[in-house]
Design a protein around this nucleic acid. Sequence first.
RNA 1: GCCCGAGUAGCUCAGUUGGCAGAGCAGCUGUCUUGUAAACAGCAGGUCAGGAGUUCGAUUCUCCUCUCGGGCUCCA
Length: 668
Amino acid sequence: MADITVSLPDGSTRQLPTGSTGADLAASIGKRLARDAVVAEVDGRAKDLDAVLLDGETVRIVTVQDPMAAEHLRHSTAHVLAQAVLDLWPGATFAGGPAIENGFYYDFELPDGGSFTDEDLIRIDARMREIIAADQPFERFELPLDEARSLMADHPYKQAFMDLAANGDDADGEVSSSDAFGDGVISFYRNTPEFVDMCLGPHVPTTGRLANFRLMRHGGAYFRGSEHNPMLQRIYAVAFPTAAELESYLTQQEEAAKRDHRKLGVELDLFSFPEEVGSGLALFHPKGGIVRRLMEDYSRTRHEEAGYEFVYSPHITKADLFETSGHLDWFADGMFPPMELDVPETDDAGDRTDGTSYYLKPMNCPFHILIYRSRMRSYRELPLRMFEFGTVYRYEKSGVIHGLTRVRGMTQDDAHIFTTKEQMGDELGSILVFVLDLLRDYGLDDFYLELSTRPPGKAVGSDEEWTEATEALGSVAESMGLELVLDEGGGAFYGPKISVQTRDAIGRTWQMSTIQVDFQLPQRFDLTYVGSDGERHRPIMIHRALFGSVERFFGVLVEHYAGAFPAWLAPEQVRILPVADPHLDYAHECAAELRGHGFRVDVVAADETLGSRIRRAKGEKVPYVLVVGDDDVAHRTVGVNPRGGEVERNVPLVSFAERLRGDVESKS
RNA sequence: GCCCGAGUAGCUCAGUUGGCAGAGCAGCUGUCUUGUAAACAGCAGGUCAGGAGUUCGAUUCUCCUCUCGGGCUCCA
């Protein structure tokens, strides 16, 4: 009866009756495999388990334990979400619903322009669990385009996907999981007589296989991600193959919420955003001010050692400068509107006179260029490295402002390096080493790099320049031995860039530093240097920010450390608590001695119980609490209560000072 | 900018057919003098984000503005 032979991943073969499916194969191998099977991978392509196998195919059964399984489970759960919403909102229509990292989403348009509420998510969740309990099959079928259109007659967004496919215009399609287009036919999956979704598949055999999901939030989303399209209502969910994975994800989310720098910023009295100042404009309080100053001071020291020269530039400048730089052509939307000085008015003769516009600077580069251009430059001066903590202002759209990580006023640790073409490769290499070194000192040591190449369409600079710069960046990136992700066409029009992505203590990634090659500005400002041949040459400019912005980096550090800054950055390193009033003088003596070593120390007198004062110090995440009582006064010792450690009694003050010195020097 | 939601004491939050504004913590003043994560008592604290409107009367209902949160788009 064995009419077909299929190969298995271990190289063995298996014979099955003609017409057998992936599910049949799994069942023939083992009960457990059949139970855990999600989809079949046939000759490297994922297919439904009930797809008929052909002679000679290589088949792998993808089980819930397989890393590939999650994507299919998520996507299948998205269909259940769609069915639930279409059930509950007669007249609603749906667009796309792909699997994404950790889960999936689905976009809908509700009748009369409605939108979802938090309560709706509860109803939808309940309906989804009914659908899952009903163990509905996912039945695949295919239709020619015209029949597909009439089946989806009530669903304009599905029609739009068909149009895109018919025009072959799906190149940029982010919403790709809904393209259900094979060779001139369109595939669908039917769960019930009423519910059919257009989809390429594959899916799990039945809805009963789905369980471990949670609807997370709802929000608006433009159709196909373009602000020129209608806004749909999106529901996000997370989903995992097992309940344990779902649980662990949700726990991690709670942990992340506890680290939120906006929350900790208030609790630890670090910074605030008063409504009176304006959206996206931060005030740093004294404690935040200490942390920030320490970050900046250390950065200055390291830049000085690395051969950077320090420059300063004003916050506002005449419009002409940004005309020349091109900012007003391509960045005007991101700039605050101009201040009109010497306002145009009618002069004595009745003619209008022109005023002068000043702009808040959105970037520092034009100023550094003017410093470069202030006199003739020799090749002997290059590479010339200019550094500034430059405060810039950008008119970010109101919906994007977010704590310290997205603001309207920020200070960049900005450097511009002018090099010869020949020096560029070496210089890029040493910049990258410098950047990564410094980030490690701030406690971030898990990186990957992203290389953004020439954007399609118009870009400044010759092909040779782009190739040369991109290759230089690429080889420098590779020499770091770090993971390198290619961001094809993601560069600015004036040059390619490397961005450093860092993972924090709980695995989230943040874009930090960028290193960008610029062919554009040296041309626009006609920058030159005199080479050894006595001729003038055009330098290349490298833009480089390490923190990105001091504000963002500050926010990332708060979250990375969950507010518990290492001793070298902590606003208050030591808090000394006398057990009772008679020990107060000794506490102050200890404080004076530690301050003499350059440590930041406070004393809190015994107005409250010791337990209460310790609790407060712990809440404020002070690295060391020292308790001093009778024994300590007698022997010049302290009781050391370290953050996250065990209490030690009778520690000589000098030993403690050494310990703290060690923490500070090792930045731990 | 767009879709949705929210804004009550420094912080976390109560407050319904529209009728004088509430708690805990923090703060201040006393008392307590404490050996490692919450002593006790009292006091003070508010134009209920701001502005218009409806109403005899608005924290509550309507509209506008500002700010914040979750998304989209964008980005350091």
